[in-house]
Computed example of a mutant assay.
Amino acid sequence: MRQLIKQRIKNEKGLTLIELLAVIVILGIIAAIAIPSISGIIQNSKEDAVRADAITILNAAKNYAAANDVSGVSGGKITEKEINSSYVNNLKIKSFSVDVSGNDFKLITDPVDAGKNTIEFKSATISDINAKSETTVVVSKK
């Protein structure tokens, strides 16, 4: 009996070429599905990071306006110079201004790099940014 088991073990030499090819094809199919999906997730996270920075800027502008007389600042405008040092740091959005009219705060930026796209804010409020309004939040391909 033991001899029969030893003979069967000796006869098994591993995987056949067809079995190896089947495994490689399956791994290729999984990679073909996963890679584009992951790159889409990465792109969306880069765009969401820029939108989060924009909301941070508008909230910082509100804090700045509460602490200072905004009507005297550049005719109701707040720029990155006023709020960068004390209210926010390390943002992807470098050049911006916030128009202040009463309780309305509207963000205006140059185009900002967001992975494969650029995002530009044109008089965007927090509501516009959250709603991804196409009129005030312009996303364009590079």
Rank of each mutant, 00 (worst) to 15 (best):
S101W: 02
A66I: 12
N63F: 03
I18V: 15
L58G: 02
S74R: 14
G40F: 02
I93L: 03
N103Y: 03
D48H: 04
A32V: 07
L91V: 11
I18A: 12
I78R: 03
V50I: 15
L58T: 07
I57D: 05
A32E: 08
I55V: 15
L21F: 05
A66V: 06
K46D: 11
V88M: 13
N44M: 13
D104G: 01
A31G: 08
I93Y: 04
R51C: 15
I18G: 04
I38P: 00
G72A: 11
E80A: 12
L27R: 05
G75I: 01
L58V: 09
I42S: 06
A54S: 10
I42M: 13
E82C: 08
A22V: 13
D99C: 01
A54D: 09
I29S: 11
E19F: 06
V50E: 09
I78A: 02
K46I: 08
I29Q: 05
T16R: 07
I29L: 15
A49E: 15
S85F: 11
S71N: 13
I41Y: 10
I35F: 06
K77G: 00
S95Q: 13
N59W: 01
K46M: 15
I57Q: 03
A65T: 05
I33P: 08
K13Y: 00
L58H: 03
K81C: 10
I30P: 01
Q43T: 06
K77A: 10
N103E: 15
E47I: 11
A52H: 00
T79R: 01
I33W: 01
S85V: 14
L15M: 14
I18M: 10
G40C: 07
L58Q: 07
I55N: 06
I35A: 07
I30C: 07
N90H: 09
V98H: 05
N59T: 11
L20C: 13
S71Y: 06
S95Y: 02
E80P: 01
A52L: 03
A22I: 10
N84L: 13
A52S: 12
F96A: 08
I26H: 02
I93M: 09
N59P: 00
S95R: 02
S86Q: 13
G14Y: 08
E12M: 07
